[in-house]
Structures are given as structure tokens and as C-alpha cells.
């Protein structure tokens, strides 16, 4: 484990801790959430991380893949990872059961500047599985509610069944200390919330950019148009935070595949402001 008390000189950055899956939630037809507890009580107790940091999950025999820790550091009964089935490792993860052993290398990468965000209004804009990285910060902020201004969430998915974290949505909708809007791409029977693409719904919501930070994550096409919508709403480039995804192997800035020019997404990211992204060469 990287962040344990061992010094950088002695720690093996590739050696995962072993954890046990304590709960699996079928979020959508292709997303499962895994709640993992590290087997060593000490490791679990000493585990610290910041909202937005990622971890590598290992299914030994298949490999490793990177996921954000989407539970907040304020709730340490387990570490939560949501996995969309896409490749070899994610497909294998989807076959696992409660009680199965799993490798965890975490935390890796940078995080949302949650200290600097204190006192600001926050607009979360999540699309599909992109809600996962937002969830960790949202829950952290709700657990430290007094530190932050107005919290607005816009969460969209293709259809009602593609919405993850359904078990939390009623709470988010009901709470009076945050404003939640859910949207799907097209009308569906029984859907009582907004209908429309995220950027359009966002424009209608018309959040004020004054002392506000927009935090967005989702599929590339959604991000593209959301950035345009945010600009129209008066958000400056350094008022927008997002997270990047790249194919990663080592997770510690060595193996050479996640760099965009001089920046390594695994250590300099995954969290970037839009202003920082614009500085990077175009190789997303």
C-alpha cells in the first residue's frame, strides 16, 4: 500500500493490498458497484485518501484497471468502486461475488481541491458512469455541509435504467440543503424528472457562475457540449473542474502510456481544471 507509513524508498508501488468484496450493487445493466474492505485491519484503519483519487483493482489472473474511489473519505466502512463493463478486467470484475478476494492499489493520483472550494457554490454535472467521481466529492461536501455554499446537482443518463446510485437519489432529491435535477435523453414511462440532454437542461437551470465552481464528468461528447454551455453561463475556464481517463498500467507515472505531452494523467491527474486542460497539448 502506497500511503502507508513505509517510506517511498521501501514501498513496492505495484504490490496491491488484498481486500474482500463485502457488497455488490447492480446499478444498471452494465455497471456494478463493489464495496471493498481491506483484509488487514491496520491497512483499513490507516487508509486515508482525498475525494477524486483513484485506485487500481486487481483480479489476479486477469489484470488491473483504474477506478475512482467513489465513497467519500468521511465514510470509511468500505471503499466503493463502480465498474462499467467495457474490457477484459471489468468483465471479470462483473463475475465476482461477495466474499471474493481482490487486489487494491490506492490511493493514486491527485484529487478535487476540496479545501480551496470551501465557501463556494458548487454545481455538479454528471453523465452516466461519470457520476462516480462526483459522488465522492458530493458526499464529502454533504458530510461537511457548513463549509460549502449552495450545492446543485445535475445528473443525467440515457434512460431511467441507466441511472446509477438509485438508492441515493431520493435522499438527494428530498434534501433541502442541495438542489437536484435528474434528466434522461428521451421520454420514458413513469419518469417524473427532466427530459433532455445535459447541456440543454443545464442552460435551462441557469446556475449563477458568481463564486461558483462547476464540476463535471461524463462521456467525451457530453463534456464537449457541457463546456460550451458553461461558457455561455459565464463560467470561466478556471471555474470548471473535470477528471480525465486514460489507459493506465503502473498508476505511478512510470510506464509511459497515460501522458499527454509532459503531464501524466495518473499522477498529475485525473483532476484538471478546464484552464489546465486547455494548456495541455491536444491528445485526449
Amino acid at each position: 500500500m502506497l500511503q502507508n507509513t513505509q517510506t517511498a524508498k521501501d514501498a513496492n508501488p505495484y504490490l496491491p493490498s488484498i481486500g474482500t468484496i463485502v457488497e455488490i450493487i447492480e446499478e444498471t445493466p452494465n455497471i456494478k458497484t463493489f464495496r471493498v474492505v481491506l483484509n488487514s485491519e491496520g491497512d483499513m484503519k490507516n487508509f486515508t485518501f482525498h475525494p477524486g483519487q483513484v485506485g487500481q483493482l486487481s483480479v489476479f489472473g486477469t489484470g488491473e484497471s483504474t477506478f475512482v474511489i467513489n465513497s467519500p473519505p468521511t465514510r470509511m466502512d468500505y471503499l466503493q468502486f463502480s465498474v462499467m463493463k467495457a474490457g477484459e478486467v471489468t468483465a471479470m470484475l462483473h463475475t465476482l461475488s461477495v466474499g471474493d478476494q481482490i487486489g487494491v492499489r490506492a490511493p493514486l493520483g491527485n484529487w478535487f481541491p476540496y479545501e480551496e472550494l470551501k465557501g463556494k457554490d458548487i454545481v455538479f454535472i454528471g453523465g452516466g458512469i461519470g457520476m462516480a467521481p462526483l459522488r465522492t466529492l458530493l458526499l464529502y461536501m454533504l458530510d461537511n455541509r457548513a463549509d460549502y455554499g449552495k450545492i446543485t446537482l445535475l445528473y443525467g443518463a440515457r434512460s431511467p435504467e441507466d441511472m446509477a446510485f438509485k438508492y441515493e437519489l431520493p435522499d438527494w432529491l428530498e434534501r433541502d440543503d442541495m438542489e437536484t435535477t435528474l434528466t434522461i435523453d428521451a421520454e420514458a414511462p413513469g419518469w417524473e424528472h427532466s427530459v433532455g440532454l445535459i447541456p440543454n437542461v443545464l442552460q435551462e437551470m441557469n446556475p449563477s457562475s458568481e463564486n461558483c465552481m462547476a464540476i463535471t464528468c461524463g462521456p467525451p461528447i457530453m463534456i464537449k457540449f457541457t463546456l460550451q454551455a458553461l461558457a455561455k453561463l459565464g463560467f470561466k475556464d478556471d471555474q470548471i473542474l473535470t477528471t480525465l481517463e486514460k489507459r493506465m498500467k503502473c498508476g505511478v507515472g512510470i510506464c509511459g502510456r497515460c501522458n499527454i505531452g509532459t503531464k501524466y494523467v495518473c499522477v498529475d491527474g485525473p483532476v484538471f481544471t478546464y484552464a489546465q486542460l486547455k494548456e495541455l497539448p491536444n491528445e485526449l
Binding site: 489476479f60 489472473g61 486477469t62 489484470g63 498500467k249 503502473c250 512510470i254 510506464c255
Partner: peptide, 15 residues
């Protein structure tokens, strides 16, 4: 050139 890949190879219960 120092880039690398990490992959698992297994046979049965070990690898």
C-alpha cells in the same frame, strides 16, 4: 526506452 506493460498470466489457481 523504459515503458512497460503489466499483465497477468495464470494457470489454474496460481499465476
Amino acid at each position: 526506452c523504459y515503458c512497460f506493460n503489466i499483465t497477468d498470466e495464470s494457470s489454474g489457481m496460481e499465476g
